[in-house]
Simulated assay, not measured.
Amino acid sequence: MTKYVIQVSEDKNSLAFAASDLIAQIIESTLRNKSRAKIALCGGSTPKAAYSLIGKKNLKWSNVDLFLGDERWVDNKSQESNCFLINNSLFQEGNPSLSASFFSVSTVELASPEESAEDYETILKNNFDANLPRFDLILLGLGDDGHTASLFPGSDALFERDSLITVGEGKGLKRITFTSKLLSSADNVIFLISGTAKQTALRRLLDKSESWERTPAKLVAPSSEIIVLADKDAYPSL
C-alpha cells in the first residue's frame, strides 16, 4: 500500500519555496553518496515557480542529470512544450543550474510520437547502468482529472507494463511519457499540487479505495513513501 506524506503550504508562492528547498536537499543528499544525481522533471505552473527558485541555488549542478517525465509531441520551442518551460525557468541566463545535463525529448523532428518514445527510452538506458532506471527523484504534477505525467484516464498508456516510455494522449495532443513501471522506480517521488481545481483529484489520490483507472496517479507506487507538497487551496483541511 502506497504511503503519502502530506506537507501543506500557506499558498502557491510558499509552496514553490518549500519545493525548491526539498529538491535541493535531495540533490545534496544524493551527491554525498553518488557521483551523479538523476532527476525527472514535470511541467506545469507550480513546478515552474519552484524551478525558477532552485535554478539560482549553488548546488553541484555539473553532477546533475535532468530528464523529462513527459513531453507533448510539439516543437520544443512551442510554449506548450515542457522543454520550453524548463528553458525559461530552471535555465535562466546566469543561473548555476546551466551547468547541469538536460536530456530533452526529441519530438516533431522525428517521424512519429512512437519513434520519439523509442528514442527517449534509448537515451534513458544509455544513461543508467540497470535495465530499469532508478531515479533519485521524480517530480510529478496532478491533473484535475487525476492524470499524472501523461497517463490520462482512458488512455492505452495506462496498460503499458513492458516499456519504460510510451505514447499517451490527452487534451487533444499526443504525448511521450514515462510508464507507470518507470514512475514507480525512484528513490524519491514528489507530487506538487496547488489550486482549488485540484481538490477532488487530490482527495481521490489519497483515497485507498480509489481505482487507478479513474485516477491514473494511483499507478505511481514506489517502495518508498510519496511526498505530497500542496497548498491550502488544494488541500484545505489542514
Rank of each mutant, 00 (worst) to 15 (best):
E114H: 12
E114D: 14
E114I: 07
E114M: 11
E114N: 10
E118R: 14
E118H: 04
D119G: 02
D119L: 05
Y120C: 02
E121L: 02
E121P: 03
I123R: 03
L124H: 01
L124K: 01
L124S: 01
L124M: 03
L124I: 01
K125G: 03
K125V: 04
N126F: 00
N127W: 06
N127Q: 07
N127G: 08
F128R: 05
D129A: 13
D129W: 04
N131D: 15
N131C: 05
P133Y: 00
P133H: 02
R134P: 05
R134L: 10
F135D: 01
F135I: 09
F135Y: 09
D136S: 08
I138S: 03
I138C: 05
I138L: 08
L139H: 08
L139F: 08
L140Y: 09
L140H: 05
L140P: 08
G141H: 10
L142M: 14
L142I: 14
L142V: 08
L142Y: 11
G143R: 05
G143L: 11
G143F: 13
G143V: 14
G143Y: 11
D144S: 15
D144W: 07
D144R: 09
D144T: 11
G146E: 10
G146W: 06
T148Q: 10
A149S: 13
S150A: 12
S150R: 11
L151I: 15
L151S: 04
L151G: 04
P153S: 09
G154K: 04
G154E: 05
S155E: 05
S155A: 15
S155T: 07
D156S: 14
D156F: 07
A157W: 00
A157H: 01
L158V: 04
L158G: 05
F159S: 06
F159W: 03
E160D: 15
R161Q: 15
D162W: 05
S163T: 08
S163E: 11
S163C: 08
L164Y: 00
L164H: 01
L164F: 01
I165F: 01
I165R: 00
I165N: 00
T166H: 12
T166N: 09
V167G: 12
G168M: 13
G170H: 00
G170V: 02
G172E: 06
G172F: 12
G172M: 05
G172D: 06
L173N: 14
L173C: 03
L173Q: 14
L173D: 10
K174W: 13
K174Y: 15
R175L: 07
R175A: 10
I176L: 00
T177I: 02
F178A: 01
T179F: 04
S180C: 03
K181M: 06
S185G: 02
A186H: 11
D187W: 03
V189S: 00
I190Y: 02
F191W: 12
F191C: 07
I193P: 02
I193R: 00
G195K: 12
T196K: 15
T196A: 15
T196L: 07
T196C: 11
A197N: 15
A197L: 10
A197I: 11
K198L: 06
Q199N: 03
T200C: 07
T200N: 10
T200L: 12
A201F: 09
L202A: 04
L202H: 06
L202G: 07
R203T: 15
R203L: 06
R204N: 14
R204S: 15
L205P: 09
L205G: 14
L206Q: 13
L206E: 07
D207C: 13
K208P: 13
S209F: 10
S209L: 11
